[in-house]
Structure formats: structure tokens, C-alpha cells
Amino acid sequence: MELLLRNLRLRPSMFFLDGSFGQYVAFLSGFELRSKAAEGDFLEGFGDWISTRFGHDRNVTWPTSVLRSIWPDWNGSAANWSKLDTESENRASAVLFELLAEFKGFKPGASGEVP
């Protein structure tokens, strides 16, 4: 799992992604559906974990909780993800992978990437 997350973060084009937050969310959501059907629940409890960690309502999706961990007043929908500027997009993606690493018990690498 660590290798998947590392490659996903550092080489998004390997997975036909552009490295945007929205595409990472779509990929991880699809992977989650596949993992439920095959070997387990990859993101089970992730949304609740983020909500508890940051004191957010549990009635929002995990992507919204990730964004609220950066911008507490974030109130946007998935349609607003495409409106993030490049700096915000990079920050949202970095925080997503930092939180995934922490949730899964991985230690981030020296430059913040998932090991």
C-alpha cells in the first residue's frame, strides 16, 4: 500500500492522472470500491478519523474534511475543486497524502511524500 501511495503521489501520470486534488479523490474513491470487493476496505474509517482529528462534522465527505483541515471555512462542493489555483491545488494534494500516510501509519519521507 505504501508503494501505491508513493507512486500515486510522485508519478500521477503512471495512473493517467494530472496530479490534481479532484483526480486523486476520484482515483482513491474508485480504488476504495475495488478494495471493498476484493481484499478489504482501504479507506474504511478515514472520513471519521479526519473529522475527529480536526473536530469537523461527520456529515461531510472525506475530501471535504481534507480541504477543511487546510481551510476551516471551506464550504465548497466537488465542483469547486476545479477552481483551486495551482498553489492551493498542490497544497490540497500534499495534505491529502500526509493525512493518508498518518491514517495508514506510514512515515512521510524527507520531502513530505508518502514513503
Results as ranks from 00 to 15, higher is better:
L67C: 02
R6M: 07
A110Y: 13
V66N: 00
M14W: 14
I70R: 05
N75V: 00
A110D: 13
F54W: 09
E32P: 04
S69P: 04
E98I: 00
G105F: 09
D85Y: 03
L3H: 15
F97N: 00
A92F: 04
F42Y: 13
N75K: 11
F103P: 11
K83T: 03
K36R: 07
S93I: 02
W71M: 03
R6I: 07
S82K: 14
A26Q: 12
E44T: 09
Q23M: 01
T52Q: 13
G19A: 12
V114M: 00
K104F: 01
G109T: 06
T52V: 09
F15R: 08
S77I: 09
L96A: 02
A110E: 15
Y24A: 01
E98P: 02
Y24W: 00
E98W: 09
R58K: 15
F97L: 05
A94W: 08
E2K: 15
V60M: 13
F42C: 08
L100D: 02
A26D: 14
G22K: 09
G109A: 15
S51T: 14
G109P: 01
T64F: 07
G76D: 12
A37M: 15
D48F: 05
H56C: 04
T86H: 04
R34Y: 11
D41P: 04
E89Y: 06
L8M: 07
L33I: 08
G76Q: 09
G109S: 15
S111G: 00
R91M: 06
R68L: 03
S51G: 11
F103Y: 15
N59I: 00
L4F: 12
T52Y: 05
F15C: 13
L100I: 14
F27Q: 04
R58L: 09
K104Q: 00
A38Y: 13
F46R: 07
D57N: 12
E102S: 11
P108Q: 11
F16E: 12
G22A: 15
A37P: 10
L10V: 09
R68S: 03
E32K: 05
V66G: 01
N7Q: 10
G30A: 12
D18K: 14
A94S: 12
N80A: 06
F97C: 02
A92R: 08
F31Q: 04
I70Y: 01
L67E: 01
W81H: 15
Y24P: 02
L100N: 05
L5A: 05
G76P: 05
P63H: 04
D73Y: 00
L17I: 11
W74K: 11
E87K: 14
L99F: 04
L33A: 10
A26C: 06
A94D: 02
G76V: 11
L43K: 06
H56T: 02
A94H: 10
E87W: 06
K36D: 12
A110T: 14
E113K: 11
G109K: 12
